[in-house]
């Protein structure tokens, strides 16, 4: 075999990269949530943070890494799903998957795709205007609060984050399994932390949005 071939071209390798990019995105969400939380403190603080994120050279580099992470995660996820479909060409007439696995774990591609659709909307509404400076004269804070003032936007936002929470709840501990760091002693803790994390992320983003919608 060519050197490192197995590290890129095998079922386990694909899962490994899925996990690594997933864990990277998990970290990113924490940063993003922290910045969002600043909107609850003051407009100035948030604007300053947003400015920092838009101009800091390291963050600028990381943006490309982040984009790569997203793309690998998405492309790999779709590829895995297609391969997995092929592994069972004939379906069962009767399947009781609920008896042995969680709905979240079985619907990663569905929640993933829905979150991806949201991501596109989200990029169009926030990232592109901020990046291009084409914000109709609003500062970052006003842009955010204006959008959250629209009920349908906030609704989509909250639903998407609930879906993301479901995605993360499986993805978090699954990633540790895929990279081989999980064993029976740690599995309870890992799923526990994963669940808490998912609730914090889904709840955090949603509550901030709802707060701005209400006040």
């Amino acid at each position: 075999m060519a050197p490192l071939k197995g590290f890129f071209h095998s079922s386990i390798a694909r899962k490994f990269w899925m996990a690594i990019t997933g864990l990277f995105l998990v970290t990113f969400l924490v940063v993003h949530l922290t910045v969002n939380a600043f909107t609850l403190v003051s407009a100035e603080l948030f604007n300053e943070a947003a400015h920092f994120m838009a101009t800091n050279p390291l963050i600028q580099v990381m943006q490309y890494v982040l984009a790569a992470g997203f793309i690998i995660h998405i492309v790999m996820g779709i590829r895995l799903t297609l391969q997995n479909r092929k592994a069972r060409p004939d379906r069962y007439a009767m399947e009781k998957a609920g008896a042995n696995s969680s709905l979240g774990s079985r619907t990663m591609i569905q929640t993933g795709i829905l979150v991806l659709l949201f991501l596109i909307i989200h990029l169009r509404n926030f990232f592109v205007p901020i990046k291009t400076g084409n914000m109709g004269g609003m500062d970052d804070y006003t842009l955010v609060t204006t959008l959250f003032g629209e009920w349908h936007y906030t609704l989509i936002y909250v639903v998407s984050f609930v879906l993301l929470g479901v995605h993360l709840n499986h993805g978090f501990q699954s990633a540790f399994q895929s990279v081989g760091w999980k064993d029976n002693r740690w599995k309870g803790l890992m799923s526990g932390v994963g669940t808490v994390y998912s609730i914090v992320v889904a709840g955090g983003f949603s509550l901030i949005a709802i707060y701005h919608f209400l006040f």
């Binding site: 079922s11 899962k15 997995n84 042995n100 696995s101 774990s105």
Partner: peptide
């Protein structure tokens, strides 16, 4: 197929 850690 690939393992997606559903645990089934």
């Amino acid at each position: 197929g690939n393992c997606t850690n559903t645990g089934a």
